[in-house]
Design a protein around this nucleic acid. Structure first.
Lengths: 336, 336
DNA sequence: CTGAAAGCGCTTACAG
DNA sequence: CTGAAAGCGCTTACAG
């Protein structure tokens, strides 16, 4: 039913080895023979079985990506980066979107079983036990946007430095009383951003009192509530650093509802540089994250692991955590 | 390096056939033997090579999906439907997003080469020559949201009926002068919607003069321009049917900018039922498309083709085009 | 330059 | 219940 390499060989009057050689452009094949084989392939509309090739080659030219969602501009940028990197070496990308926990498992399993040559895991937290097994023997792995503290190449955005840059800028505006609206408490991102702010403040001899640190959850609404809480303080802050743009936007609304002005009465800055940030009034000062680049570099790293694996060249001590630099985006909400 | 079925067999002191039997739960295996094999699998952290299984089984338990974008709520609903359907039979979904034409090609090629058991193509127009080859021999295909007129199972939203429902409703409001803002002229969707409107009008003895049909392009901005054009008419319409919600929203803005009211002065209705439609003022009357269901049914059909293929049970004359019913969503913009 | 054969890691009748 | 062997569709030294 499906045409195989045997059918082609018979039709061209050669052995399957020769057909394989012309398909893969390996070794020398006489022009006439090549011609005949090509003709047979054409006539029979032959397409090599990818599974058989993968099995024989121990390689599928396919990269697996596990990501929480694709239906989200933030994650989608990562996907684009990964896809572009894969394209450069003619690799296909297989996306496993873990919308449902059950299916996440299914994909991880499929990927590890040699369906892909390597995989990139984004913002995922697998049971580290399972992960360890996977990396120990099997498919090379690279992580992005999540640090498991394991011996796995990991690409992260440098939240700490980004926060520092932003805080330093706030210092230039000479604000003294600065508040922080955190993301969900247990996320490393939020903690790193807070740490950046705190360090800069203390270097400038300033405090970050507990009442100036209010917990949000990154989502719409929480920034609003947090800001209201800050506004009730007797010594309300002069500037507010929100752990992401969404909460910064919320905070701006809360301030304006209270009849105050941004940045004149209170400055507000965010983190992420989401598209909406530039459309606000005032436009939001924030920190741009190199998301696309994150995907790109993670994929490149995964791809290079494949080659090393096959060359089996010992275990060089390569860096295991790569921090990508953010960039400050100055707009008006900071007082500029 | 990677553990194979041989390693497990050796460790358990059985043949590979027996290992395979316990893996696949096929045939009877004595409890003690099974126990030993399971133990060996566990100890060696064995995971069967998916390529080898696929080759031996002539089946990968994987469904391929080719779709223009995933980063779009509309298409994403399809993805969800497909994924859910695949899940019910424990199939994995491999998504090929044709963001770049080159990579689209790569995926189609990979899929056809037995990497997936079947595929669903959404809103895609491949060179029909290539497509014909693919279906003739090889991986079963189902199309969604695009009718190539070929002998391929195709799932479409019933645009014509949907438009008729909406038009009939407009008739109930007794509007006489009704205009249409089309989508890109060459898309079947837009044409079908126009046809539905036109037919209903003529059944009610009404005309749809050429000056009442203005061309848009589905995108933001075009509805606005089209509406302005309609507003300049000496006998401006009483109701406007936009080929999609985005343009309907645009039209409403244009009307309001002109100092007129919706629906009092001019009624406006759309098509699609995008999330924003219900947040407008006035909320938009529109036609809901069963997008999720589209994905679900297309996937189910593709999955069933796999079984038929393997059973090789002749070619029953099955319907080749399936039209999914839309539903009318009455809100306020129509005058209700 | 080209063919015969072993091997990639599984599954599954076929014997026993 | 279990082993030996053929087969899935390729690739790639090895001879010649």
């Amino acid at each position: 039913m499906t045409t195989t390499i045997f059918d082609v060989a018979k039709q061209a009057g050669v052995s399957i080895g020769t057909v394989s050689r012309v398909i893969n452009n390996r070794d020398r094949v006489s022009p006439e023979t090549r011609e005949r084989v090509l003709k047979a392939i054409q006539e029979l509309d032959y397409h090599a079985n990818a599974l058989a090739q993968g099995l024989a080659n121990q390689q599928t030219n396919t990269l697996g990506l596990v990501i929480p969602q694709v239906n989200d501009p933030f994650f989608f940028q990562i996907v684009r980066g990964v896809e572009d990197a894969a394209s450069t070496v003619d690799y296909s990308l297989l996306i496993a979107c873990q919308s449902r926990p059950a299916s996440e498992h299914r994909y991880l399993d499929l990927f590890r079983r040699k369906f892909v040559d390597a995989m990139v895991l984004v913002a995922i937290d697998v049971y580290s036990h399972e992960l360890e097994q996977i990396i120990e023997r099997g498919v090379p792995i690279v992580m992005a946007q999540q640090d498991l503290g394991k011996n796995i190449p990991t690409f992260l955005v440098d939240n700490y430095r980004g926060a520092r840059q932003l805080a330093e800028h706030l210092m230039e505006h000479s604000y003294q009383r600065i508040a922080f609206i955190s993301g969900t408490h247990y996320t490393p991102d939020s903690r790193e951003r807070l740490r950046g702010l705190r360090d800069v403040l203390s270097e400038h001899g300033l405090e970050l009192p507990a009442r100036y640190v209010v917990e949000g959850d990154y989502l719409r609404g929480s920034g609003h509530r947090a800001m209201q809480q800050l506004l009730e303080l007797p010594d309300r802050p002069e500037a507010v650093f929100a752990a992401n743009d969404q909460m910064a936007i919320d905070a701006i609304m809360a301030i304006q509802e209270a009849g105050l002005k941004v940045p004149d009465d209170i400055a507000v800055v965010g983190f992420d540089d989401i598209p909406m940030a530039s459309y606000l009034s005032p436009p939001l000062t924030t920190v741009h994250q190199p998301i696309y680049e994150l995907g790109w570099h993670a994929a490149k790293a995964a791809l290079s692991l494949i080659k090393e694996e096959s060359k089996d060249n010992g275990s060089m001590a390569a860096p295991h955590v790569m921090l990508l630099p953010t960039s400050l985006v100055l707009r008006r909400s900071c007082g500029c």
